[in-house]
């Protein structure tokens, strides 16, 4: 029995090799050839803009809180019009594990993952991305969303001017 099993095992392996020899190869000649990943592929992180061209990121610190490897850091600041934005925003890609938890945490759709997987470098400092390296001129996924059109604090629209808001109440009004 052992002999038959041995022959069978050897022949089967040769058969698989033979069969695969005539198939189209799945490997490609990277970097001459490049593969287009799926749209939901999780690679290099970007900061997107809202449809009006403003920065989406409000520096709420949720991505840095969600990040399991602590690779995101930032400082929030207030602009003259009351908009909260990131004074600086840094992602250390030497640490990033591309888990995507930051994008899940992001309440304004600012931080998104792209399919740009080519992040290799000889100098680790070059992999520490600042806000200028991260911010893109595009809305990315969810192109119509502008957080400030839904948050009720009046930055893009005047206070009480968003779709789901009443105009500001008058405290001196005695009407019921």
């Amino acid at each position: 029995m052992n002999l038959i099993r041995g022959i069978k095992g050897t022949a089967q392996a040769y058969w698989i090799t033979l069969r695969t020899m005539f198939r189209k190869p799945v490997t490609i000649q990277y970097p001459e050839q490049k593969r287009q990943p799926f749209p939901r592929y999780r690679a290099r992180i970007v900061l997107t803009r809202d449809p009006d061209g403003g920065e989406r990121c409000v520096a709420c610190y949720l991505c840095s809180a969600a990040c399991p490897v602590d690779c995101i850091s930032m400082q929030a600041a207030e602009a003259k019009d009351g908009r909260r934005y990131a004074e600086w925003f840094r992602i250390n890609f030497t640490r990033c594990i591309f888990c995507g938890l930051c994008t899940e945490a992001c309440p304004t759709r600012a931080i998104q993952m792209t399919s740009d997987y080519e992040i290799c470098n000889r100098d680790p400092l070059d992999l520490v991305y600042e806000k200028t390296d991260l911010l893109i001129d595009d809305t990315g996924k969810d192109p119509d969303y502008n957080f400030y059109r839904h948050a009720g604090i009046g930055v893009v629209n005047p206070r009480g001017g968003n779709e789901d808001e009443k105009p500001p109440a008058d405290v001196r009004d005695l009407l019921p």
Partner: peptide
């Protein structure tokens, strides 16, 4: 209550 926890200092 507005939808503004991300820009509210009390958040968290």
């Amino acid at each position: 209550h507005p939808h503004d926890c991300p820009v509210c200092d009390e958040g968290g």
